[in-house]
Simulated scan of single mutants.
Amino acid sequence: MSLHYIFIALLLTAQLLPGALAAPPRRPVDVPFGRNYVPTWAFDHIKYNNGGSEIQLVLDKYTGTGFQSKGSYLFGHFSMHIKMVAGDSAGTVTAFYLSSQNSEHDEIDFEFLGNRSGQPYILQTNVYTGGKGDKEQRIYLWFDPTKDFHTYSVLWNAYQIVFLVDEVPIRVFKNSKDLGVKFPFDQPMKIYSSLWNADDWATRGGLEKTDWSKAPFVASYRGFHVDGCEASVQARFCESQGKRWWDQRQFRDLDAQQWRRLRWVRSKYTIYNYCTDRKRYPAVPPECRRDRDI
């Protein structure tokens, strides 16, 4: 690990250690892939290690690959330990997201955009509601995501969607239905992940193309954690709604320390936020008014 990443890690630890945070129950790292997930395409491009507790997605010039959850979920906590494609990953996208099945679908996205060797990854998040997205935010990470596994999580309840990296909130999307903004509320979602080629847009807007001489590109996964209210695709409610840990009061908003963490990410690492893009949105989008920093 470079001195730069060591310094950032020490700084982050020093800033974040005081005080306890409301946190989900701890889950074992070695949940096997097959308990909650199945491959969706290019099965031969998924490699299984350690009895299926760790897998690798492989992208070559012929195809990428991906997988999805067996179940569909209305609210919950979903996380994955991922080690990104190392080296020259320009043009590649590693995605981890939730999506409903309807044409006017809801979606909650992590997309990791590769780059040329020595350049940082970009993490793009987005939220689709009623089939409409255009709510992108982009950050650099405070560590090299290719050197080790890191945890990427979504907390989704009726009050908010929180994107977390190693339990650090990097984005919050509040329920603003009272402002006329749709919120993912009644469409169960499956969980997906994939590794694919997107060199028409992923790196510097498509200027940097995938170098296939560096293939195969490999992203590694473990910790296939799912803790959600499982429902059929047609179900529009959760029988245990209001009774699960993620529905409790302490998870309906970020606490003071979590807001400090989020502001730290925004001030140091955010490179794009649609809420502050006055060229695209001359007026602040309604849901952004709930943001304490906008």
Score class of each variant (00 low, 15 high):
2 S>G: 13
4 H>C: 05
5 Y>Q: 00
6 I>R: 04
9 A>C: 02
11 L>W: 04
13 T>F: 01
14 A>R: 04
15 Q>D: 13
20 A>D: 14
28 P>K: 10
36 N>P: 07
36 N>S: 09
41 W>V: 07
43 F>N: 15
47 K>P: 05
50 N>Y: 02
54 E>K: 02
55 I>Y: 06
57 L>K: 00
65 T>K: 00
66 G>Y: 01
74 L>D: 06
75 F>Y: 12
77 H>K: 07
79 S>G: 06
83 K>C: 12
91 G>K: 02
92 T>L: 07
98 L>K: 01
101 Q>C: 00
106 D>L: 06
106 D>C: 07
108 I>L: 14
120 P>D: 13
127 V>H: 03
128 Y>W: 09
131 G>F: 06
136 E>P: 07
139 I>L: 03
144 D>G: 01
145 P>F: 03
146 T>C: 11
161 I>G: 08
164 L>D: 10
167 E>V: 05
171 R>Q: 13
171 R>V: 11
172 V>Y: 06
172 V>W: 03
172 V>E: 14
173 F>S: 14
174 K>P: 04
174 K>D: 11
176 S>C: 10
180 G>C: 13
184 P>H: 02
191 I>H: 06
196 W>L: 01
199 D>R: 00
201 W>N: 10
202 A>D: 04
203 T>E: 11
244 R>P: 08
247 D>C: 11
251 F>N: 13
251 F>S: 13
254 L>W: 07
263 R>A: 13
266 R>S: 04
269 Y>W: 15
270 T>E: 12
275 C>Q: 08
282 P>S: 10
284 V>D: 12
287 E>M: 03
288 C>Q: 04
291 D>T: 09
292 R>L: 15
